[in-house]
Amino acid sequence: MSVDIKIIRIGVIGFGTIGKYVVDGALAHDEFEVTAVFDPNLLSASAEFMSRPEYRRIRLMASVNELVSCERVDLVYIATPPASHIEYCRLALAQRKAVWCEKPLSVDLTAADKLVEEIEAAGVMSAVNLSLASSPILDKLLSLAEEVGHGEAQQVEMRFHYSQWPRHWQAAADWLSSREQGGFLREVFSHFVFLQHRLFGEMKLVKGQVTFAKEGCETYVMAEYLCGDLPVRVCGGIGGAAPDTNEWTLYTDRRAIRYSDWNKLSIGTQDSWNDIEIGQVGSAVSLQLDEVAKMMTGKPHKLASFREALAVQVVVEQTLNSSC
């Protein structure tokens, strides 16, 4: 069921780094109006929030229930830590609101599986914010992977490294360093699992080794998977001064195709790596909002479904538990 209105009214639960990013992106998008926000941290800072000219027309809600039941909200965007996602999705679902949820979908696979069944049975518009879904990077990789001239796929490698975790721009989000909800596998690796699933099908864990901080998230991972017959190897860690590494590489019998640093594509031969021109693209949030608008008006879109997000989370959680 699509929304037969010119402006899509969005209510946002959670006003941390990503929540603010989406609010600001929606305010700049001509198909959206941010009508409501709830974050418990804003309840004591409402005057400061409302003093921002761009936020003055946004209503600060006293609770999640008040936001999801508001008649001036067509779409509920959930930007809170993952342990709350299922509860908030269900509250929105009870009000027959469209749902756009942050990844990871949940840290409880059994509960997440049940939620996906409920959402599919209800038939409400829904998606999970795996941002590569709308990226031209994914479109280009799909094209490159299908070109015969690039050779037959032999293996995929993913590499991740962070000098600190959470990253400096996420320092206020303490939950990102917790074993229960955080870590780079849930926060970053999940994007690359989604990418791999869209390109080659679902990953199946073969074996994994994960090391955790004494009272925190993972600090090292080495794991192997299969996508059909295609081997996928993953290595990642935290610590040591160096630029962050976020890298996916497909090796074929003729060359290699690499995606790195969130916006860079390269073709590799035995002699060198050569960058591929992607062209001018919009910001990640504007591209996602374009696809959300399509979803809300009943048009075909590229957004990740809850079912796809669940498949991603199965890989992530199985990896985290592989050394237990």
Rank of each mutant, 00 (worst) to 15 (best):
Val76Trp: 03
Tyr77Thr: 02
Tyr77Glu: 04
Ala79Leu: 06
Ala83Thr: 06
Ser84Glu: 14
Ser84His: 13
Ile86Phe: 15
Tyr88Thr: 02
Arg90Lys: 04
Leu91Thr: 09
Gln95Arg: 04
Gln95Pro: 04
Gln95Trp: 09
Arg96Gln: 03
Arg96Leu: 03
Arg96Thr: 00
Lys97Asp: 04
Val99Asp: 07
Val99Glu: 14
Cys101Leu: 11
Cys101Trp: 11
Cys101Lys: 10
Cys101Asp: 09
Glu102Asp: 11
Glu102Met: 15
Glu102Arg: 09
Ser106Gln: 05
Leu109Glu: 10
Leu109Asp: 12
Ala111Pro: 01
Asp113Phe: 07
Lys114Ile: 11
Lys114Cys: 11
Leu115Glu: 03
Val116His: 06
Glu118Ser: 06
Glu120Lys: 00
Ala122Arg: 08
Gly123Ile: 08
Val124Met: 13
Val124Trp: 15
Met125Leu: 10
Ser126Thr: 05
Ala127Tyr: 02
Asn129Phe: 12
Leu130Trp: 14
Ser131Ile: 06
Ser131His: 14
Ser131Ala: 08
Leu132His: 07
Ala133Ser: 15
Ser134Asn: 01
Pro136Tyr: 07
Pro136Ile: 05
Pro136Gly: 07
Pro136Gln: 10
Ile137Ala: 11
Leu138Trp: 07
Asp139Glu: 15
Lys140Met: 06
Leu141Tyr: 11
Leu142Asn: 09
Leu142Phe: 13
Ser143Val: 12
Ser143Gln: 12
Leu144Arg: 05
Ala145Ser: 10
Ala145Val: 08
Gly149Pro: 06
His150Glu: 02
His150Trp: 06
Glu152Asn: 02
Ala153Phe: 09
Gln154Lys: 11
Val156Lys: 05
Tyr162Ile: 02
Gln164Asp: 14
Trp165Leu: 00
Pro166Phe: 01
Arg167Ile: 00
His168Pro: 13
Trp169Met: 14
Trp169Ala: 11
Ala171Val: 00
Ala173Trp: 04
